[in-house]
Nucleic acid binder design. Structure first.
Length: 209
DNA sequence: TGTCCGATTGGT
DNA sequence: CCAATCGGACAG
């Protein structure tokens, strides 16, 4: 499939998460340009996934209450948009996490980008992260946001054009893609074991456990 | 209004 | 192992 809006609005977020491996994330700011190749990502499927911030429970609750799935708060609103925009949130009051929204409007699917191989603007990344170790720049969802200057300022942005973009770069063969349960979702009941984390096998920039 | 806690990280 | 630090979710 040609790369474009249709890539992000596809109905299989698991497949999109796998295909995001090898793609390039680039952020242009007044300070400079940074970018890296995605090497680790996790899928979140709002309607059925207790680990998702967009999970609202059954559409019809036990008491007969009918829920609308159009965004439950200002924080998660972007996840309910059409695929191809950013969903960014603050975690533990100090780190931002960057997601690619996927699927159709209202589906509330997203892919958390957990690690990049840093390729563009290494000096700027090192300054922002206050380290010169390449392995400490973009290996972890909070780290990559700090290295690339991604904050809530970039919330809801179109990733096909503009200052923050995702685009094809390298094709990662299926045989090089590893799979596991997602990190730090132990609270999510049955969803804790969903094998929705994907990473490039043997890549040193994948975040540690 | 008050309390609880997280899709994390860095330092003991 | 544990603290940092803040806003969303929910109880009352």
């Amino acid at each position: 499939m040609a790369f474009g809006r249709g890539f992000f609005t596809g109905d299989d977020t698991i497949k999109i998460a796998r295909e995001l491996l090898g793609m390039l994330l680039v952020h242009k700011t007044p300070e400079g340009v940074t970018g890296g190749m995605i090497v680790e990502a996790e899928a979140y499927i709002g309607a059925i996934d207790k680990a998702s911030h967009a999970y609202t429970g059954p559409v019809t609750a036990k008491d007969g209450t009918v829920r609308t799935r159009c965004g439950k708060s200002a924080r998660t609103r972007a996840m309910f948009d059409e695929g191809g925009v950013s969903y960014i949130y603050l975690i533990y009051g100090m780190h931002y996490c960057f997601n690619v929204v996927t699927g159709k409007r209202g589906e509330a699917c997203a892919v958390l980008i957990r690690a990049l191989r840093p390729l563009i603007g290494l000096d700027l990344m090192k300054r922002r992260r206050k380290t010169s170790d390449p392995l400490m720049l973009c290996s972890g969802p909070g780290r990559l946001c700090e290295a690339m200057g991604i904050t809530k300022e970039q919330y809801g942005m179109d990733l096909l054009k503009g200052e923050l973009t995702v685009s094809p770069f390298r094709k990662i063969p299926e045989t090089r893609i590893g799979t596991s349960a997602r990190i730090n979702v132990d609270y999510a009941e049955e969803a804790r074991d969903f094998p929705w984390r994907f990473f490039v096998r043997d890549d040193p920039f994948v975040s540690g456990r």
